[in-house]
């Protein structure tokens, strides 16, 4: 498995299929960020890319969620 330095932060859409990452930051209007927070997509959460693209499908603690991040939101992740 390829190891990336922990400091590297990339946008979610750049995460390749099957790779795991930890969400570093969610950027966007505070209401959207709060909604994603409540949904469970927040800084520190571990995710795994199931199907890249926009919208993409990520695995979030065992379940799958789909998410579109265009213009409104930017989800930055640290690949693990």
């Amino acid at each position: 498995m390829k190891h990336t330095p922990p400091a590297e932060v990339i946008p979610l859409w750049n995460l390749s299929e099957g790779s795991c990452a930890r969400i570093a930051r969610v950027l966007g209007p505070s209401d959207h960020v709060h909604r994603l927070d409540e949904f469970g997509l927040r800084g520190g959460t571990k995710i795994e890319m199931f199907r890249p693209g926009n919208p993409c499908i990520v695995r979030l603690s065992g379940n799958k969620v789909c998410l579109r991040t265009d213009g409104l939101l930017e989800v930055l992740v640290e690949p693990m």
């Binding site: 499908i57 799958k64 998410l67 579109r68």
Partner: peptide, 12 residues
């Protein structure tokens, strides 16, 4: 309004 946020759970 802007294109809405789309975040949804995909149940098993």
């Amino acid at each position: 309004g802007e294109t809405p946020l789309f975040v949804m759970e995909l149940p098993g």
